[in-house]
Computed example of a mutant assay.
Amino acid sequence: MSNNSNWIKALSVTDVPKNDVKRWDYGTKSFAIFRTAEDRCYATDDTCTHEHARMSDGFVMNHTIECPRHAGSFDFRTGEALNPPACINLKTYATKIEDGVIYVDVG
């Protein structure tokens, strides 16, 4: 495992409703941060790999995010593209929660 971790304070856990997604910008990059019913958090790129729509505007169900533009969907835990027209996986980022704050490893 690399020691190039770059943990950045992103959002309060309560900023992201359970079973939903919220956009977070850091520098020139946008991320989609997800929170599950079990209070686990995940982060992906916020841009769909198919048509460049914002994933944070998509529909969350269980561990899946559906792109708002063409209904391609991804498993936000792994980034895996699940159905056409999406065929390229989303990039994912490690997350951790400390003292009610979500940190994203942007390194």
Rank of each mutant, 00 (worst) to 15 (best):
D57L: 04
P85Y: 06
S12D: 12
D46E: 03
A10V: 07
E80K: 14
D75P: 06
H52Q: 13
I33E: 03
N89S: 15
K18W: 11
H50R: 03
T44S: 02
N83Q: 10
A43P: 00
G107M: 10
E98L: 15
E80P: 07
C67S: 02
I65R: 00
G72W: 00
K91I: 11
V101L: 13
A37N: 10
N4K: 15
Y26N: 12
S2D: 10
T95A: 08
F76L: 07
T44V: 00
E51T: 09
A86Y: 02
T36L: 01
L11N: 07
T64G: 06
R35P: 00
R77K: 15
N83W: 10
P84T: 11
Y26F: 15
E66T: 13
T49L: 01
G72V: 03
D75N: 10
T28I: 14
F74I: 06
Y26S: 08
H63P: 02
F76K: 01
L90K: 03
C87S: 14
S30W: 01
C41R: 02
T14Q: 15
D99T: 06
F74N: 00
T64F: 05
G100A: 12
R54E: 07
T92C: 05
A53H: 05
T28L: 09
D75S: 10
E38A: 06
D46S: 04
K96I: 09
V101S: 08
R35K: 05
C87L: 12
V13D: 08
I88L: 11
A81I: 06
T28F: 09
A86W: 03
N62C: 08
T47H: 05
T47Y: 04
T64H: 04
I102D: 01
N3Q: 14
G100Y: 13
A37K: 07
E80I: 15
E98R: 09
N4Q: 15
G72C: 08
S2H: 11
G72E: 02
T78Q: 07
A37D: 09
M1D: 13
M55S: 00
T44I: 03
Y26T: 09
W7F: 08
T44M: 02
I88D: 12
A43C: 07
Y93F: 10
I102V: 11
K18I: 13
N4F: 14
P68G: 09
C41I: 07
K18F: 11
I102K: 03
N6C: 15
V60G: 00
E38V: 05
I102G: 01
L82A: 06
W7S: 06
Y93P: 05
M55P: 00
M61R: 12
I33Y: 01
R35F: 00
K29V: 10
G100S: 12
M1H: 14
R54V: 05
M1E: 12
I65V: 09
H52G: 08
N6K: 13
V60P: 00
A37S: 07
D20K: 14
Y93K: 08
K91M: 10
C48E: 01
P84E: 13
D45S: 06
G100I: 07
K9Y: 07
K29R: 11
F31T: 01
T92G: 05
S12Q: 14
V101T: 11
